[in-house]
Amino acid sequence: MKFAIIEFPGSNCDHDAYHAVRHVLGQQADFIWHKDTDLRGADTVVLPGGFSYGDYLRTGAIASFSPVMDKVREFAAAGGPVIGICNGFQILLEAGLLDGALLRNRRLKFLCQDVHVRVEATDTPFTASAELGQVLKLPIAHREGNYHVVPERLADLEANRQVIFRYCDSAGLTSDSVNPNGSVGSIAGICNLRRNVVGLMPHPERACESLLGSDDGRVVFESAVAALVA
């Protein structure tokens, strides 16, 4: 299967994502420049992390208007699997493909550390091979990761089981002390109503080999491969 990895000016996890799917999983991967308007027959689209457009104005705001995003919208509307990681998540929110917004972390600091997240739903293309409640150790690296929605929308997200990852401790328990950035509901990742578009702040692509501290992130990409075969 083929992954399209979208590159914006300022993306910096594009090669990590490429390495994860190409070298760790042995799948095909193409870099797609943000001015391109052809996803080249990709089966899955990855919006990688980084600092697109230098985070000017708001994180992900300017990238969400890149020419390639029209194609990503069409791809998502046709049910194609799309994952946005960190800045990619921010772009999906700004593009209106996911609900809510990411505020500055509650203590305003850039956070670069390992966290644990709990898999809250396995009926998405990026969690299909995970166990419900599985705890993944993944790194975060962001300053705007404090997920926010108004309470009514949060209730909708919960009712529709659109929360896909939640910050927790190594045993899978959520609490304010293990919520690194102040996200409402300890939310680390969500999906759209159709469940084919997923965004998350932690970096699964940086946790695909035990040599790098954790291979817990592999399941996210293995799920995408399995979901397509299924």
């Binding site: 208007f65 809510g100 917004a101 926010h148």
Partner: peptide
Amino acid sequence: KLLANTVI
């Protein structure tokens, strides 16, 4: 459209 994110 651009300068404000009306979600927040």
